[in-house]
Simulated scan of single mutants.
Amino acid sequence: MIAALTVLLVFQLLGEVIARALSLPVPGPVIGMALLFLALLIRGGPGEDLRQTAGTLLQHLSLLFVPAGTGIVLYGDRLATEWLPLLAALVASTALAIAVTAVVLRALTRQRPSSAGGARQ
């Protein structure tokens, strides 16, 4: 488990270094996750240790939201003054995510033959 956590943290660190060195507008952990994805593609998938560690982290994902909740409490006054742009961004991004998901789902269901003899619906 320690080795798998080390792998995850090393890729996050690589992402942070790349993001800061190149002044990219993308968060370092996102770049690190993309690098980890590429490494796993090349390697042929995660090992059992990494798979179990990731599963354990996902089971306790709610604990990772504690810092975000603390940030909301800490910056409550700023949220109170800038609630309208935050609400607009939240609503717009949610609507965009739902729309993109619907378009992707429609494209994927058109490509996949149905289980009833291969006829499309």
Rank of each mutant, 00 (worst) to 15 (best):
M1N: 14
I2A: 14
I2E: 15
I2N: 14
A3G: 11
A3I: 10
A3V: 13
A4W: 08
L5F: 15
T6K: 10
V7K: 06
L8R: 08
L9H: 10
V10M: 07
F11P: 02
Q12K: 05
G15Y: 03
G15P: 01
G15E: 02
G15H: 00
V17E: 04
V17R: 07
V17M: 06
A19Q: 07
R20Y: 05
A21P: 10
S23N: 12
S23H: 14
L24C: 00
P25W: 08
V26C: 03
P27V: 07
G28Y: 00
P29E: 02
P29T: 03
P29F: 00
V30N: 04
G32D: 09
G32R: 06
G32P: 09
L35M: 02
L35H: 01
F37K: 07
L38M: 02
L38H: 00
L40R: 06
L40G: 07
L41P: 02
I42Q: 03
I42E: 04
R43K: 14
R43S: 14
R43W: 13
G45I: 01
G45S: 10
P46K: 01
G47V: 09
G47W: 10
G47H: 11
G47Q: 12
E48T: 07
E48L: 05
D49S: 12
D49R: 05
R51L: 02
T53Y: 05
T53K: 01
G55P: 00
G55A: 02
T56N: 00
T56I: 00
L57Y: 05
L57R: 03
Q59S: 11
Q59R: 11
S62R: 08
V66N: 08
V66S: 07
P67N: 12
P67D: 14
P67R: 13
A68Y: 15
A68D: 04
G71Y: 12
I72H: 07
I72K: 08
V73M: 12
L74W: 13
L74I: 14
Y75G: 00
Y75A: 07
G76H: 11
D77Q: 07
R78I: 11
A80R: 11
A80E: 09
T81Y: 00
T81H: 04
W83V: 06
L84W: 15
L84P: 06
L84M: 15
P85W: 15
P85Y: 13
L86F: 14
L87G: 01
L87K: 03
A88M: 14
A88F: 14
A88K: 15
A89Y: 12
A89N: 09
V91Q: 05
S93I: 09
T94H: 09
A95H: 11
A95F: 13
L96K: 06
I98D: 02
I98M: 09
A99G: 04
V100K: 09
T101K: 12
V103P: 00
V104L: 13
V104N: 05
L105S: 13
L105I: 05
R106F: 02
A107T: 13
T109R: 08
T109D: 08
R110G: 08
Q111G: 04
Q111L: 06
R112F: 03
P113N: 01
S114L: 14
S114I: 02
A116M: 13
A116F: 15
G117T: 04
G118Q: 03
G118C: 01
A119Y: 10
R120S: 12
R120L: 13
